[in-house]
Design a protein around this nucleic acid. Structure first.
Length: 150
DNA sequence: GCCAACGTTGGC
DNA sequence: GCCAACGTTGGC
């Protein structure tokens, strides 16, 4: 079982939205590296941190479970969607999503500021300069360390 | 709102 | 294949 961190802007989709819906298709990923990770590495039963980005207090806010591997993201074929991609071939869709389920909210936000400078997180991909991937892998040691801060 | 970092596009 | 221009992400 692998661990992940998945970013979402709370103004677009927050941990409260996921708690209400219990599960969702993690749509809108339009980055090839992330797509390949979803296709090749994310598996049912994996655990993921829910991370709020581009907001007043960026940080880890909850935990979810990966429900299923990549399937085509319907938004790429929806002309009304901001995620529509006219270049994607319906017979061979470019973009995938994974299904995720709500597990729990953290009792508090573990902020980005807190994660920075934390001994043991030197190699955490989220903290690397210029990192913009919306899904990043988390090692078991990093997972435990971050949870211990709660 | 600013800006650094990075990805994508498209001319050549 | 190179690279400049442009778009997006996301912290601050």
């Amino acid at each position: 079982m692998a661990y992940w961190l998945m970013k979402s802007e709370p103004g677009t989709y927050s941990i409260d939205d996921l708690e209400r819906e219990r599960s969702t298709g993690w749509d809108g990923v339009r980055n090839y590296q992330v797509r390949n990770m979803m296709r090749d590495e994310m598996r049912k039963g994996d655990q993921a941190f829910f991370y709020h980005s581009s907001c007043a207090e960026p940080g880890v806010v909850g935990i979810m479970t990966v429900r299923g591997g990549g399937r085509p993201d319907p938004a790429q074929f929806d002309p009304e969607s901001p995620y529509c991609d006219p270049k994607s071939d319906p017979d061979n869709p470019t973009w995938l999503l994974v299904e995720v389920a709500f597990k729990r909210k953290l009792s508090r936000t573990i902020t980005l500021a807190e994660l920075r400078g934390q001994p043991g997180l030197d190699d955490f991909q989220l903290l690397r300069r210029g990192n913009r991937l919306s899904v990043v892998p988390v090692t078991p040691a990093q997972w435990e360390l971050i949870l211990s801060l709660e």
